[in-house]
């Protein structure tokens, strides 16, 4: 089935004071309630911060935890999950699954050092445009207060390029084996600390 690619509801600009941290928040909405709520907010010109990038799923139950983790890994400061109110799922009870995934994910990200506040769940019916806008504003402020997550994106990181390649070139393929550690010393070693 193909449907016309939806355009994200255009948020109304809210200008943040210069110099404040502008978090990037990925928002997953369901097709039937929360996306329409966001749409309604847009149509009604209800103001909410532009920090949330909305991605429409058919149902919050479609939210694969992979999406959330990938968002963090690739630079998002937080993820907002939104779906129909419990008991009102278009697919009967898939939003309960979303709820369970959300709670499980929150525990897991916390164990990995990510504040649970960086994953938020908001239920919103199609009529709750204003409420959703308010929730987005709230989440944005909460995340702003948490500060940037700055997860080192996987594809940007190569820990050893800073020394190993150069060092290896310098040895010219030395029979001695690999290059030694960078001018190395454990800074905690008493001897080093004394220096």
């Amino acid at each position: 089935m193909t449907t016309q690619a939806p355009e994200a509801p255009a948020p109304v600009e809210v200008v943040a004071p210069a110099g404040t941290f502008e978090p990037v928040i990925i928002g997953f909405t369901c097709n039937w309630c929360s996306y329409r709520a966001a749409d309604l907010a847009g149509t009604a010109r209800v103001k909410y911060p532009p920090n949330v990038r909305l991605i429409r799923l058919m149902c919050s139950g479609r939210l694969d935890p992979t999406f959330v983790l990938k968002a963090y890994a690739e630079g998002a400061d937080a993820v907002l999950v939104s779906g129909c109110h419990p008991g009102e799922c278009h697919y009967i009870e898939q939003n309960y699954k979303a709820m369970r995934r959300f709670q499980l994910l929150q525990r897991t990200i916390e164990a990995l050092g990510i504040e649970p506040g960086r994953l938020q769940l908001v239920w919103a019916s199609a009529a709750e445009g204003v409420r959703l806008a308010n929730e987005i504003a709230r989440v944005t402020e909460e995340v702003r207060a948490l500060g940037p997550l700055n997860w080192p994106a996987a594809d940007l990181v190569d820990l050893d390029t800073f020394s190993l390649e150069k060092a290896w070139e310098a040895t010219g393929g030395d029979v001695e084996g690999p290059p030694k550690a960078p001018a190395g010393a454990n800074p905690d070693h008493p001897k080093e600390a004394a220096k």
Binding site: T66, L69, K70, Y96, M99, R100, R101, Q103, L104
Partner: peptide
């Protein structure tokens, strides 16, 4: 793509609870 994400999904599917407090109580078992 991510092993843990898949397993979390699978566990979320077999848990018999629809209230946040009930879910939390079950998850305390992990």
């Amino acid at each position: 793509v991510d092993y843990g994400a898949r397993l979390m999904s699978a566990y979320a599917s077999v848990i018999e609870a629809t209230k946040p407090e009930e879910i939390d109580k079950i998850l305390d078992g992990i």
